[in-house]
């Protein structure tokens, strides 16, 4: 029997694959390990301790940044998902229409335009608005985060819709369901896993953002990532490791949940 080309049998493949994985995960493992360092170095191990977690917990700046990050991520998630659901419905349901490809591209703009470009553009526009209105609150960050989270919320919802049998909605209408009742009783329950998955992805993306936040935030509006960045410029202690480890934990939980929701049977 003729054997097909198998990349795994090529010389050096296992070594290269191993090197890639080490490069990806070793730094993260080290980061997590040193968050438990008893000493104040991020490079010299001096024994196990929870002290940096306690220190981060007691740090008012960290607490304020955490609360701000969570408010921001939650608001952005809700807004982005609220935009993504109707967008996905409009794109997937009534059949093809003229300019569909263009609109698809426009929705996914944040995935294609370099983040730094969006960040600078937002900085300029928001600066003008700040001068005109005098408002300097969290609104700018929430708007900016919502905007770049939309495609992340949109993708899983659209995938879910695409995999949904059109006949289900037709069956609902055939059985005397008005379009709105069919949406509530048939479409929405089917769509839930997609909506939740999209929301969680958006949450993680917002929680993790540095570039746009750094450009858009006003003074005293540090989120966890921008606070960490600020800390690194001064003195580096395992406290940053501890915060990073907690962020990592949240992301892993979210991504795992996302994975299972996307996989969940219809």
């Amino acid at each position: 029997m003729a054997r097909t080309f198998d990349i795994r049998r090529q010389t050096g493949f296992p070594a290269i694959a191993m090197a890639c994985f080490i490069l990806l995960y070793l730094p993260i493992i080290l980061l997590v390990a040193y968050s438990f360092n008893a000493g104040s170095s991020v490079a010299v191990w001096e024994g196990f301790s929870w002290r940096w977690y306690a220190s981060a917990w007691e740090n008012d700046q960290v607490r304020a940044a955490t609360v701000r990050s969570l408010i921001l991520a939650l608001s952005a998630t809700v807004l982005a998902t609220a935009c993504a659901v109707p967008a996905a419905l409009a794109m997937a349901r009534p059949g093809r229409f003229k300019g569909q490809g263009l609109i698809f591209g426009l929705i996914n703009q944040p995935l294609m335009v370099p983040e730094i470009v969006t960040a600078v553009a937002l900085l300029i526009v928001f600066a003008a608005v700040k001068v005109a209105t005098g408002y300097t609150g969290m609104g700018y960050l929430i708007l900016a985060h919502s905007a770049f989270c939309i495609p992340f919320a949109y993708m899983p919802i659209k995938a879910r819709l695409a995999g949904m049998d059109r006949a289900l909605e037709q069956a609902g209408q055939d059985l005397y369901g008005t379009p709105f009742r069919v949406f509530l009783r048939i479409t929405l329950p089917q769509l839930w896993p997609g909506i939740l998955a999209g929301a969680m992805l958006a949450f993680v993306i917002s929680l993790d953002d540095v570039v746009i936040t750094e450009f858009v935030k006003s003074a005293g509006q540090d989120t966890l990532p921008t606070y960490m960045l600020g800390q690194l410029r001064r003195v580096v202690t395992p406290e940053v490791n501890a915060i990073a480890t907690v962020l990592l934990g949240i992301s892993v939980v979210m991504v795992v949940a996302f994975f299972f929701l996307s996989k969940s049977r219809k």
Partner: peptide, 18 residues
Amino acid sequence: PYRRPVNTVFQSYALFPH
């Protein structure tokens, strides 16, 4: 369709999975 006294058995059955 939702006002027609006509019901359909779909080829794929289209049973509501939830």
